[in-house]
């Protein structure tokens, strides 16, 4: 046992610079998880729901999902997994 204390971690001379706002796809996705979104597939079918999560393939898990075809609701799902290759876009349906 000794009473030497480890040196305190070197305090940074200044706080690290805030990461620049890039507006990249990754940043967009971070902002939109948990929000209401519209997912449009290349077929034109829309899925409206709350974005639970997604991965690098744009595979998507949605909650409270409504399927819209030509503007009409055609199905409702509590949860839905959408395979990413079908996704045309993910659009925010409420302010991010």
């Amino acid at each position: 046992m000794d009473d030497t204390t480890p040196p305190p971690p070197a305090a940074p001379a200044s706080p690290p610079p805030a990461p620049p706002h890039t507006g990249s796809p990754t940043d967009f996705l971070k902002g939109v998880v948990g929000k209401r979104v519209v997912v449009r597939l290349t077929s034109g079918v829309d899925y409206r729901g709350v974005l639970s999560c997604l991965d690098g393939y744009m595979n998507i898990a949605l909650e409270q999902t409504e399927e819209h075809v030509n503007g009409a609701v055609t199905n409702r799902y509590g949860d839905a997994f959408i395979r990413g290759n079908n996704v045309l876009y993910i659009s925010a349906a409420e302010p991010i």
Partner: peptide, 14 residues
């Protein structure tokens, strides 16, 4: 929360 335990889309399938 119904999404509890879902970190990635495949969790929904699992």
């Amino acid at each position: 929360d119904p999404s509890a335990g879902i970190q990635e889309p495949f969790d929904l399938i699992r």
